[in-house]
Design a protein around this nucleic acid. Structure first.
Lengths: 126, 126
DNA sequence: CAGAATCCAACCGGATACTG
DNA sequence: CAGTATCCGGTTGGATTCTG
Protein backbone atom coordinates (compact mmCIF):
# COMPACT_ATOMS: atom_id res chain seq x y z
CA UNK A 1 0.00 0.00 0.00
CA UNK A 2 2.92 2.28 0.52
CA UNK A 3 5.14 1.81 -2.50
CA UNK A 4 2.45 1.84 -5.08
CA UNK A 5 4.80 3.28 -7.66
CA UNK A 6 3.44 5.09 -10.66
CA UNK A 7 1.45 3.32 -13.30
CA UNK A 8 3.73 3.64 -16.23
CA UNK A 9 2.80 7.28 -16.68
CA UNK A 10 6.41 8.34 -16.96
CA UNK A 11 7.87 5.54 -18.98
CA UNK A 12 7.23 1.92 -18.34
CA UNK A 13 9.09 2.00 -15.08
CA UNK A 14 6.41 0.51 -12.94
CA UNK A 15 7.77 -1.72 -10.24
CA UNK A 16 11.30 -1.09 -9.09
CA UNK A 17 12.77 -4.07 -7.35
CA UNK A 18 10.76 -6.44 -5.29
CA UNK A 19 7.14 -7.11 -6.06
CA UNK A 20 6.79 -7.45 -9.79
CA UNK A 21 5.38 -10.86 -10.22
CA UNK A 22 4.45 -11.52 -6.63
CA UNK A 23 2.20 -8.53 -6.53
CA UNK A 24 0.42 -9.88 -9.54
CA UNK A 25 -0.27 -13.05 -7.63
CA UNK A 26 -1.49 -11.16 -4.63
CA UNK A 27 -3.70 -8.94 -6.73
CA UNK A 28 -5.20 -11.89 -8.47
CA UNK A 29 -5.79 -13.67 -5.24
CA UNK A 30 -7.67 -10.72 -3.85
CA UNK A 31 -9.97 -10.93 -6.82
CA UNK A 32 -10.76 -14.59 -7.07
CA UNK A 33 -9.36 -15.80 -3.77
CA UNK A 34 -12.18 -14.58 -1.61
CA UNK A 35 -14.25 -17.14 0.20
CA UNK A 36 -16.75 -18.71 -2.20
CA UNK A 37 -15.66 -16.53 -5.08
CA UNK A 38 -14.02 -19.34 -6.94
CA UNK A 39 -16.92 -21.68 -6.33
CA UNK A 40 -19.43 -19.17 -7.57
CA UNK A 41 -17.52 -18.54 -10.74
CA UNK A 42 -17.08 -22.22 -11.27
CA UNK A 43 -20.77 -22.92 -10.97
CA UNK A 44 -21.56 -20.36 -13.58
CA UNK A 45 -19.39 -21.89 -16.21
CA UNK A 46 -22.18 -23.93 -17.78
CA UNK A 47 -24.64 -21.12 -18.14
CA UNK A 48 -26.71 -18.61 -16.24
CA UNK A 49 -27.88 -19.62 -12.81
CA UNK A 50 -30.50 -18.10 -10.59
CA UNK A 51 -29.71 -16.72 -7.21
CA UNK A 52 -31.32 -19.34 -5.06
CA UNK A 53 -30.07 -22.15 -7.24
CA UNK A 54 -26.59 -20.86 -6.85
CA UNK A 55 -27.15 -20.55 -3.17
CA UNK A 56 -28.24 -24.16 -3.01
CA UNK A 57 -25.39 -25.38 -5.18
CA UNK A 58 -22.86 -23.91 -2.85
CA UNK A 59 -24.32 -25.23 0.35
CA UNK A 60 -22.34 -23.80 3.18
CA UNK A 61 -22.32 -20.23 2.05
CA UNK A 62 -24.93 -17.91 3.43
CA UNK A 63 -27.05 -15.83 1.12
CA UNK A 64 -25.29 -12.83 2.44
CA UNK A 65 -22.00 -14.17 1.21
CA UNK A 66 -23.37 -15.17 -2.15
CA UNK A 67 -24.78 -11.71 -2.61
CA UNK A 68 -21.64 -9.96 -1.53
CA UNK A 69 -19.35 -11.96 -3.73
CA UNK A 70 -21.73 -11.69 -6.62
CA UNK A 71 -21.80 -7.91 -6.29
CA UNK A 72 -18.07 -7.85 -6.17
CA UNK A 73 -17.71 -10.06 -9.20
CA UNK A 74 -20.17 -7.90 -11.01
CA UNK A 75 -18.31 -4.72 -10.15
CA UNK A 76 -15.20 -6.34 -11.50
CA UNK A 77 -16.86 -7.41 -14.67
CA UNK A 78 -16.52 -11.14 -14.16
CA UNK A 79 -20.23 -11.71 -13.79
CA UNK A 80 -23.30 -10.19 -15.32
CA UNK A 81 -26.56 -9.74 -13.46
CA UNK A 82 -29.83 -9.93 -15.31
CA UNK A 83 -33.29 -9.39 -13.92
CA UNK A 84 -36.16 -11.14 -15.64
CA UNK A 85 -39.58 -9.81 -14.83
CA UNK A 86 -41.34 -13.10 -14.40
CA UNK A 87 -43.98 -13.80 -11.82
CA UNK A 88 -42.01 -13.53 -8.63
CA UNK A 89 -38.98 -12.05 -10.37
CA UNK A 90 -36.01 -14.17 -11.09
CA UNK A 91 -32.45 -13.07 -11.44
CA UNK A 92 -29.87 -14.67 -13.61
CA UNK A 93 -26.18 -14.51 -12.99
CA UNK A 94 -24.01 -15.18 -15.93
CA UNK A 95 -20.28 -15.36 -16.29
CA UNK A 96 -18.83 -12.83 -18.71
CA UNK A 97 -16.17 -13.44 -21.31
CA UNK A 98 -13.72 -11.81 -19.03
CA UNK A 99 -14.88 -14.01 -16.21
CA UNK A 100 -14.21 -17.03 -18.36
CA UNK A 101 -10.58 -16.12 -18.62
CA UNK A 102 -10.30 -17.06 -14.98
CA UNK A 103 -11.79 -20.50 -15.42
CA UNK A 104 -8.56 -21.97 -16.67
CA UNK A 105 -6.78 -21.18 -13.49
CA UNK A 106 -9.76 -22.23 -11.44
CA UNK A 107 -9.86 -25.59 -13.13
CA UNK A 108 -6.21 -26.20 -12.49
CA UNK A 109 -6.69 -25.31 -8.89
CA UNK A 110 -9.63 -27.66 -8.67
CA UNK A 111 -7.65 -30.54 -10.07
CA UNK A 112 -4.75 -29.83 -7.79
CA UNK A 113 -7.04 -29.66 -4.80
CA UNK A 114 -8.81 -32.88 -5.56
CA UNK A 115 -5.92 -35.17 -5.06
CA UNK A 116 -4.32 -33.56 -2.12
CA UNK A 117 -2.72 -35.86 0.39
CA UNK A 118 -4.94 -36.33 3.39
CA UNK A 119 -4.50 -34.10 6.35
CA UNK A 120 -3.21 -31.19 4.34
CA UNK A 121 -6.25 -29.05 4.79
CA UNK A 122 -6.20 -29.75 8.48
CA UNK A 123 -2.67 -28.49 8.73
CA UNK A 124 -3.87 -25.18 7.36
CA UNK A 125 -5.59 -23.85 10.38
CA UNK A 126 -4.99 -26.41 13.05
CA UNK B 1 -24.12 -28.34 12.38
CA UNK B 2 -26.90 -29.22 10.03
CA UNK B 3 -25.43 -30.98 7.06
CA UNK B 4 -21.82 -31.34 7.96
CA UNK B 5 -22.10 -35.00 7.06
CA UNK B 6 -18.50 -35.99 6.44
CA UNK B 7 -17.70 -37.55 9.82
CA UNK B 8 -16.38 -40.49 7.85
CA UNK B 9 -16.32 -42.42 11.09
CA UNK B 10 -18.92 -44.73 9.69
CA UNK B 11 -17.81 -45.21 6.16
CA UNK B 12 -16.34 -42.74 3.73
CA UNK B 13 -19.55 -40.97 2.92
CA UNK B 14 -18.26 -37.48 2.88
CA UNK B 15 -19.89 -35.22 0.34
CA UNK B 16 -23.46 -35.89 -0.57
CA UNK B 17 -24.78 -33.80 -3.41
CA UNK B 18 -23.75 -30.22 -3.92
CA UNK B 19 -20.20 -29.30 -3.13
CA UNK B 20 -18.01 -31.85 -4.75
CA UNK B 21 -15.84 -29.85 -7.05
CA UNK B 22 -16.57 -26.49 -5.57
CA UNK B 23 -15.37 -27.67 -2.24
CA UNK B 24 -12.16 -28.69 -3.89
CA UNK B 25 -11.73 -25.14 -5.04
CA UNK B 26 -12.45 -23.80 -1.62
CA UNK B 27 -10.11 -26.25 0.01
CA UNK B 28 -7.35 -25.36 -2.38
CA UNK B 29 -7.94 -21.71 -1.83
CA UNK B 30 -7.59 -22.10 1.89
CA UNK B 31 -4.20 -23.62 1.31
CA UNK B 32 -2.59 -21.29 -1.16
CA UNK B 33 -5.05 -18.43 -1.02
CA UNK B 34 -3.82 -16.94 2.20
CA UNK B 35 -2.28 -13.52 2.06
CA UNK B 36 1.33 -13.75 0.84
CA UNK B 37 1.19 -17.53 0.56
CA UNK B 38 1.25 -17.52 -3.19
CA UNK B 39 3.99 -14.95 -3.34
CA UNK B 40 6.17 -16.86 -0.93
CA UNK B 41 5.83 -20.05 -2.86
CA UNK B 42 6.51 -18.25 -6.07
CA UNK B 43 9.71 -16.74 -4.76
CA UNK B 44 11.01 -20.10 -3.78
CA UNK B 45 10.67 -21.58 -7.20
CA UNK B 46 14.27 -20.85 -8.22
CA UNK B 47 15.92 -22.31 -5.19
CA UNK B 48 16.27 -21.99 -1.43
CA UNK B 49 15.94 -18.55 0.02
CA UNK B 50 16.86 -17.25 3.41
CA UNK B 51 14.34 -15.77 5.72
CA UNK B 52 15.35 -12.17 5.54
CA UNK B 53 15.89 -12.31 1.82
CA UNK B 54 12.41 -13.63 1.40
CA UNK B 55 11.17 -10.95 3.69
CA UNK B 56 12.83 -8.31 1.56
CA UNK B 57 11.62 -9.83 -1.67
CA UNK B 58 8.06 -9.57 -0.55
CA UNK B 59 8.20 -6.04 0.70
CA UNK B 60 4.87 -5.28 2.25
CA UNK B 61 4.53 -8.37 4.32
CA UNK B 62 5.64 -8.21 7.92
CA UNK B 63 8.03 -10.75 9.31
CA UNK B 64 5.21 -12.06 11.37
CA UNK B 65 3.24 -12.88 8.27
CA UNK B 66 6.19 -14.43 6.50
CA UNK B 67 6.83 -16.61 9.49
CA UNK B 68 3.24 -17.63 9.89
CA UNK B 69 2.74 -18.54 6.28
CA UNK B 70 6.05 -20.30 6.17
CA UNK B 71 5.10 -22.41 9.17
CA UNK B 72 1.81 -23.23 7.58
CA UNK B 73 3.38 -24.18 4.29
CA UNK B 74 5.85 -26.30 6.15
CA UNK B 75 3.13 -28.09 8.08
CA UNK B 76 1.43 -28.80 4.80
CA UNK B 77 4.55 -30.10 3.21
CA UNK B 78 4.87 -27.47 0.54
CA UNK B 79 8.01 -25.98 1.96
CA UNK B 80 11.03 -27.39 3.74
CA UNK B 81 12.88 -25.51 6.46
CA UNK B 82 16.57 -26.05 6.90
CA UNK B 83 18.79 -24.56 9.54
CA UNK B 84 22.45 -24.11 8.69
CA UNK B 85 24.72 -23.55 11.62
CA UNK B 86 26.80 -20.80 10.16
CA UNK B 87 28.09 -17.83 12.10
CA UNK B 88 24.88 -16.05 12.95
CA UNK B 89 22.74 -18.98 11.85
CA UNK B 90 20.97 -18.86 8.56
CA UNK B 91 17.80 -20.60 7.62
CA UNK B 92 16.92 -21.81 4.19
CA UNK B 93 13.41 -22.28 2.96
CA UNK B 94 13.04 -24.55 0.04
CA UNK B 95 10.02 -25.55 -1.96
CA UNK B 96 9.31 -29.27 -1.91
CA UNK B 97 8.33 -31.42 -4.85
CA UNK B 98 4.80 -31.29 -3.63
CA UNK B 99 5.02 -27.58 -3.38
CA UNK B 100 6.14 -27.44 -6.97
CA UNK B 101 2.91 -29.03 -8.07
CA UNK B 102 1.25 -25.78 -7.12
CA UNK B 103 3.49 -23.61 -9.22
CA UNK B 104 1.60 -24.46 -12.36
CA UNK B 105 -1.60 -22.73 -11.52
CA UNK B 106 0.20 -20.09 -9.56
CA UNK B 107 1.86 -19.15 -12.79
CA UNK B 108 -1.47 -19.11 -14.56
CA UNK B 109 -2.83 -16.86 -11.91
CA UNK B 110 0.16 -14.59 -12.23
CA UNK B 111 -0.29 -14.28 -15.97
CA UNK B 112 -3.98 -13.72 -15.61
CA UNK B 113 -3.40 -11.05 -13.01
CA UNK B 114 -0.80 -9.23 -14.99
CA UNK B 115 -2.99 -8.07 -17.76
CA UNK B 116 -6.07 -7.24 -15.83
CA UNK B 117 -8.08 -4.28 -17.02
CA UNK B 118 -7.38 -1.22 -14.94
CA UNK B 119 -9.58 -0.54 -11.98
CA UNK B 120 -10.42 -4.14 -11.36
CA UNK B 121 -8.49 -4.48 -8.18
CA UNK B 122 -10.04 -1.31 -6.89
CA UNK B 123 -13.50 -2.71 -7.41
CA UNK B 124 -12.63 -5.56 -5.08
CA UNK B 125 -12.83 -3.85 -1.81
CA UNK B 126 -13.76 -0.32 -2.60
C1' DC C 1 -37.92 -15.39 -5.16
C1' DA C 2 -34.00 -12.37 -4.32
C1' DG C 3 -32.24 -10.01 -1.52
C1' DA C 4 -31.26 -5.99 2.45
C1' DA C 5 -30.42 -4.99 7.29
C1' DT C 6 -28.56 -5.75 11.61
C1' DC C 7 -25.74 -7.92 15.12
C1' DC C 8 -21.69 -9.71 16.69
C1' DA C 9 -17.92 -13.16 17.46
C1' DA C 10 -13.77 -14.69 15.41
C1' DC C 11 -9.97 -14.15 12.99
C1' DC C 12 -6.67 -11.64 10.23
C1' DG C 13 -2.91 -9.09 9.96
C1' DG C 14 -0.08 -4.72 10.85
C1' DA C 15 2.93 -2.22 14.23
C1' DT C 16 6.07 -2.46 17.67
C1' DA C 17 9.30 -4.28 20.88
C1' DC C 18 12.15 -7.87 22.52
C1' DT C 19 15.45 -12.21 22.15
C1' DG C 20 19.24 -15.87 21.42
C1' DC D 1 20.15 -13.25 11.56
C1' DA D 2 15.75 -15.28 12.37
C1' DG D 3 12.56 -15.12 14.63
C1' DT D 4 8.91 -14.61 19.08
C1' DA D 5 5.58 -11.96 21.87
C1' DT D 6 2.01 -8.84 22.56
C1' DC D 7 -1.31 -5.54 21.46
C1' DC D 8 -5.15 -4.22 18.97
C1' DG D 9 -8.09 -2.25 15.22
C1' DG D 10 -10.31 -3.67 11.14
C1' DT D 11 -12.46 -6.90 8.36
C1' DT D 12 -14.76 -11.30 7.64
C1' DG D 13 -18.44 -13.90 7.66
C1' DG D 14 -22.22 -16.63 10.05
C1' DA D 15 -26.98 -16.32 12.10
C1' DT D 16 -31.10 -14.26 12.10
C1' DT D 17 -34.87 -11.33 10.84
C1' DC D 18 -37.44 -8.59 7.61
C1' DT D 19 -39.15 -7.08 2.79
C1' DG D 20 -41.18 -6.06 -2.10
Amino acid sequence: MRARVDDDESGRRQVHDACLEPCAIERGMRIIGGKWTGSILWHLKDGPVRFNDLSRMIGGASKKMITERLRQLEAQGLVKREVLDTSPVSVHYEITDFGRTALGFLDQLRQWSEDLPEGIAEASGA
